[in-house]
Design a binder for these strands. Structure first.
Length: 426
RNA sequence: GCCGGGGUAGGGUAGCAUGGUUAUCCUAAAGGACUGUGGAUCCUUUGACUCGGGUUCAAAUCUCGGCCCUGGCCCCA
């Protein structure tokens, strides 16, 4: 007996019913937006990952040397690989590049709710276009992904990092330090938060203004004027961001999705590589951590060796989605009995096999593999959840009929063989 | 890496405080009773104290450590 390794999961047949449903729904949604499916390798040069995320990440991932002494790793996220793929065909790809991918990832970290060491994640990215429409399209696709899974207890909190960044810069404060503090706002109490900010030089007046900005939360078109008022003139970058947010808000409204969105400048997404628009998805009551997130990352392609190329996207983890679907009751119950189970009595192999082959051309059929008697064949049919049983017995064969039994109602009738085959062809 | 909760057959559990017969019950699975009919019933079988050390005449029970699960922190790319 071996135990499975920590943080990994076995998927048994019954797990695949829901998984298949979830994957199909996500792909179908992305496909309806025109996203094309890609698959990356599961191993990449370690440098591809560290270039994006820094050397410290090596402690959090599965990194090792292969037999040739190369430093490689199991991919902890998809974006670097996507970037690599885009860069190697950067010239020839028609822009925008719209790709989606369901990929497997590994992170060497402590497993906890909705987080495992090996997991699947669904990514959606638009590369090559910097526009509010691309931002909007990404968000809209994310919303439809959730809706397609029967989930509606969520809200997209949309922000733009440059607003808070410009706010700090215009007050002479280092923005990158400030971001990591802002990111902790909901995790520490008010006093601690204020102390941390004081530590990097945020004065009382500045703090009041910041608090005003961070606590705003509401429909984009209603909330944005307040942001403008508080920010005042913070420079061209901030003005661009405001315009973009305004456009995103108006697009979401026209598209009929603004009810799922709220403006929330406290979203900065840690020290991530995001450049402008960012969003994070929470359940409506914000009772849990963020469900997933995404945003614009316009510098990454260049950082990884390509020509400068704007990009926007999101990634959503499957473990958490499954949890949500189970909680909402939209995770499908496993039911996978065959449509037919063929029971035989006596020496009727030829008749049974031609029936089975004919049925298998259209549907799922099973039969006893172990030589059970009639009663035990029925038993087996019942316990695997077969919807119908067809009895092929010596007496039936002599009179050219099949006995067809509905396992749910218990009704059973004799159907002439030709008639049965005829209806099967229709 | 840090803090908390937990671990008894495949699943669910009783027993643990107060150490003491062959570890309880339900369920599941396999086989059988039934020789042209499943779900019911009955019979048989499979099957567990997470691992290791300590205390003790005796440990599922007390104690220490590891492993795993679980909630959170760090991190979240």
């Amino acid at each position: 007996m071996y135990e499975k390794l920590r943080g990994v999961r076995d998927f048994y047949p019954e797990d695949h019913i829901g998984r298949r449903h979830m994957h199909d729904a996500l792909y179908a949604t992305a496909r309806s937006y025109g996203f094309k499916e890609v698959t990356t390798p599961s191993i990449e040069p370690l440098e591809l990952i560290t270039k994006k995320s820094g050397d410290a990440i090596v402690n959090e991932i599965y990194a090792f040397q292969d037999k040739g002494g190369r430093d490689i790793c199991l991919i902890p996220e998809l974006t670097p690989s996507i970037a690599r793929m885009v860069i190697s065909r950067q010239k020839e790809l028609v822009k925008p590049v719209k790709w989606c991918s369901l990929s497997r990832h590994w992170r060497y970290e402590r497993p906890q709710r909705g987080r495992q060491r090996e997991f699947y994640q669904f990514n959606v990215d638009i590369l090559g276009v910097r526009s509010s429409r691309a931002d909007f399209e990404t968000i809209a696709c994310g919303i439809d992904c959730m809706l397609s899974l029967g989930l509606d207890n969520f809200r997209f909190h949309i922000s733009d990092r440059t607003l808070i960044e410009q706010f700090f810069t215009s007050h002479g404060i280092d923005a990158s330090q400030a971001f990591s503090i802002v990111d902790k706002r909901t995790k520490v109490n008010e006093g601690e938060f204020r102390d941390m900010l004081s530590g990097i030089g945020v004065g009382d007046e500045c703090y009041e203004q910041l608090e005003g900005l961070l606590s705003l939360n509401g429909p984009i078109h209603e909330t944005l004027p307040e942001v403008k008022e508080t920010l005042g003139a913070c420079g061209a970058h901030a003005d661009d961001a405001l315009t973009t947010l305004e456009e995103i808000g108006s697009l979401l409204e026209s598209y009929g999705m603004d009810e799922h969105c709220t403006l929330d400048l406290s979203i900065v997404r840690g020290l991530a590589y995001y450049t402008d628009m960012v969003f994070e998805v929470f359940d409506k009551r914000r009772s849990m951590r963020s469900l997933f997130g995404g945003g614009r990352y316009d510098n990454l392609i260049e950082l990884l060796g390509g020509q400068p190329m704007p990009a926007v996207g999101f990634a959503i983890g499957m473990p958490l989605l499954e949890l949500l679907m189970r909680e909402e009751g939209t995770w499908p119950e496993p039911s996978f009995g065959p449509d037919y189970f063929v029971v035989t009595i006596g020496d009727v192999e030829r008749e049974a096999f031609s029936l089975i082959r004919a049925l298998r051309a259209k549907t799922t059929v099973e039969y006893d593999l172990s030589g059970k008697n009639l009663s035990n064949q029925m038993n087996l049919a019942n316990s695997i959840g077969a919807r119908r049983v067809i009895i092929v017995g010596e007496r039936d064969v002599k009179s050219h009929v099949f006995t067809v039994k509905d396992m749910e109602t218990g009704d059973q009738q004799q159907v002439p063989m030709d008639e049965f085959y005829k209806t099967l062809k229709e």
